[in-house]
């Protein structure tokens, strides 16, 4: 049976090309502008990072990477990402679920709260934790008495990272879930599924691509976060330095090759994330479009 809904993309493109196309010159100018901007502000710096890292050949690069402090920084960065990304995955899904599917008092407030980490400077986020858990804070003496170390240690770094990267998953999911509404969930419940089955078999498959985007972005930021982590980490070499902090220290010590070597590894991790995302888009493009409903 003929179904017009099967071919919306084609119809749309044909329509668009007739009605709202710029003249070739204008088109070329716009594209040139976009590419030039991207090249100068994004691509060039990235190239410079790698160029600097290998400026004295491969050996200094390798020795910079093999430095015990660098290895510790890489390990800490990955550890922080491994803890904070799953936490934000769970928190993000819960918050998006609550906002998109329920009506309750304080919903607008919660939505604003989710944006808070984006709207305040990461340095302030870090300072908040210092005020909260520092030696002279309210909680400080109690923590000290029980031998719990948060500041200038891994827990503090994780907390700061979780705070800063919280919005990525939630922000990605809220519009998606709002658009999908609660129809599918109601259908599943009416068929006898319990809450968990409904989430696992119906909600999760519907949001999986948006969720994946959110996680990738969250991960990229978790590995790259500087400001908040800088305040709470204490910069203890080999112990509480993440990769971005380590890069800064090396750079301030005029050790440009090592700084850029670590930076290139960090950039490499980010690039892997981006490549992963692009591959997924190529592989599952049609399915992503279908589950997003447009």
């Amino acid at each position: 049976m003929a179904d017009p809904e099967l071919y919306p993309a084609d119809a749309y493109h044909q329509h668009a090309s007739l009605a709202v196309t710029e003249r070739p010159l204008a088109r070329a100018a716009l594209m040139a502008l976009a590419f030039a901007f991207l090249a100068i502000f994004l691509l060039l710096p990235l190239v410079v990072v790698f160029e600097q890292a290998f400026s004295r050949g491969i050996a200094p690069f390798l020795s910079a990477i093999n430095d015990p402090d660098t290895i510790a920084a890489i390990r800490l960065t990955l550890l922080v990402a491994v803890i904070s990304v799953p936490l934000n995955l769970v928190f993000g899904v819960a918050a998006a679920w609550a906002i998109a599917k329920f009506e309750f008092k304080g919903k607008a407030f919660l939505t604003t709260l989710i944006d808070l980490p984006f709207s305040v400077s990461p340095v302030i986020s870090g300072l908040v934790y210092v005020l909260l858990f520092g030696a002279s804070s309210l909680l400080g003496p109690w923590l000290k008495m029980h031998g719990i170390v948060i500041l200038f240690a891994v827990p503090g770094i994780v907390l700061a990272t979780v705070f800063v990267t919280f919005p990525f998953v939630a922000r990605e999911l809220i519009p998606l879930m709002q658009e999908q509404g609660t129809g599918d969930e109601e259908a599943a419940l009416s068929l006898g599924a319990n809450g968990w089955q409904t989430f696992w078999h119906v909600t999760l498959p519907n949001i999986k691509w948006g969720l994946l985007y959110g996680v990738l972005l969250c991960n990229a930021r978790a590995m790259g976060e500087f400001g908040a982590v800088s305040v709470v980490s204490g910069h203890i070499r080999g112990l509480t330095n993440t990769m971005p902090l380590h890069v800064e220290i090396l750079y301030n010590e005029y050790n440009a090759v090592a700084a850029f070597a670590v930076a290139s590894v960090l950039a490499g991790l980010a690039l892997v994330t981006l490549v992963l995302k692009t591959l997924l888009e190529l592989r599952y493009g049609a399915e992503i479009a279908a589950t997003r409903g447009h």
Binding site: G183, D184, E186, A187, A188, L189, S190, G192, A193, N194, H201, V202, P205, N206, A290, T291
Partner: peptide, 20 residues
Amino acid sequence: RTIQQRNVGFVFQHYALFRH
């Protein structure tokens, strides 16, 4: 009783078929 306990068949206006 919850909707699960009532054992009703509900057909939604826009069908709400599970697209995956």
